[in-house]
Design a binder for these strands. Structure first.
Length: 293
DNA sequence: GCGTCCAGGTCTACC
DNA sequence: GGTAGACCTGGACGC
């Protein structure tokens, strides 16, 4: 059987733009069905359940497959979906700034800037670590291995993202040999152990009172997290002060704004300075404009 | 088939 | 505070 749940969306919400805001929609347990514009995710709870998320008549519809779900699971799926799609984000100030720039006028008209994220910061931490110093193809491989080899199985055979406990229960050799994580393997072990023991509470970063610079320092205490990784995660917890420059963003910037000539990171930062604390979101939207054609 | 380069970087040692 | 070198993997590319 299938249970359908519904969520109202804010007026400035665009399902397609939010789902395809960055690469996360391609990382398990997310799956994207571009033909029918549906997002699939395996939610955790009492037991993992697969759900198809789509837009229907201006609202979000979540079709949960399998046995009837209890009220606790139902509430968790609704809460997680709000979080994933960032339905509660207020981007009005960002839109005011981008509307002043002709080339970024599309951002407000397509309601861009809602970056898809995972239900937990822990999942985003692990996935961000999988993006460092490798091709996007390898990132997808590592995440797929983590999900399929360590995540609990739902009724339809899909797997949820592994818990910190499940990740802490395997060895460094497992990460090297089975996950194909290479030199990142000890980082995964340490991160999982800290999260499972409660020593690291990444979820608290969502509503931390710390200034962004301090929060970034805290994130960089996680082994394997440097400037790029910390600033990427900051974006996912709703702070856009950092640009999270990586080879993709740098290359795209050189091509679009610097006649394909290499320039310094400081010059890139200065270019987006006018967007203030929204500059990280401004460069991301600017560099991914064509994704929304 | 083989070697090299590099991709959605970071860490450590050293200066 | 800045920099060089090492680090896994796997696909692309040249030969």
């Amino acid at each position: 059987m299938t249970t359908s749940l519904h969520l109202k969306t804010p007026p400035d919400f665009n399902f397609k733009t939010a789902v395809y805001s960055h690469g996360w929609c391609q990382l398990l347990p997310f799956e994207i069905d571009l033909e029918n514009w549906r997002l699939i995710y395996v939610f955790t709870g009492e037991k993992p359940v697969s759900a198809v998320i789509s837009e229907n008549g201006g609202a979000i519809e979540i079709d949960v497959s399998g046995d009837e779900i209890n009220p606790v699971t139902r509430d968790k799926i609704l809460r997680d979906t709000r979080h994933i799609l960032r339905l509660d984000d207020n981007l009005s100030e960002f839109y005011r700034l981008t509307e002043k720039e002709k080339r970024l006028a599309w951002v407000a008209s397509l309601s861009g800037g809602r970056l898809l994220r995972s239900p937990t910061v822990f999942e985003d931490l692990v996935k961000t670590l999988c993006t460092t110093n490798c091709s996007w193809g390898l990132t997808k491989n590592m995440v797929r291995n983590l999900v399929e080899k360590l995540g609990a199985e739902a009724a339809d055979g899909r797997h949820a993202f592994p818990t910190a406990e499940a990740m802490a229960n395997v060895s460094e050799a497992f990460y090297r040999d089975e996950i194909r994580a290479g030199y990142r393997s000890p980082y995964f072990v340490e991160l999982a152990e800290q999260a499972a023991s409660g020593k690291l509470n990444a979820e608290a970063w969502l509503d931390s009172d710390l200034p962004t610079a301090e929060l970034k320092k805290e994130m960089k205490r996680v082994k394997g997290f440097g400037d790029y990784a910390a600033e990427n995660l900051l974006k996912l917890v709703g702070r856009y002060d950092g640009l999270a420059l990586d080879s993709f963003l740098r290359g795209a910037f050189y091509k679009k704004h610097n006649s394909e000539q290499v320039c310094s990171d400081k010059e890139i930062e200065a270019f987006y300075g006018k967007f203030g604390s929204w500059r990280g979101l401004a460069i991301w939207c600017d560099m991914t404009e064509k994704w929304h054609d």
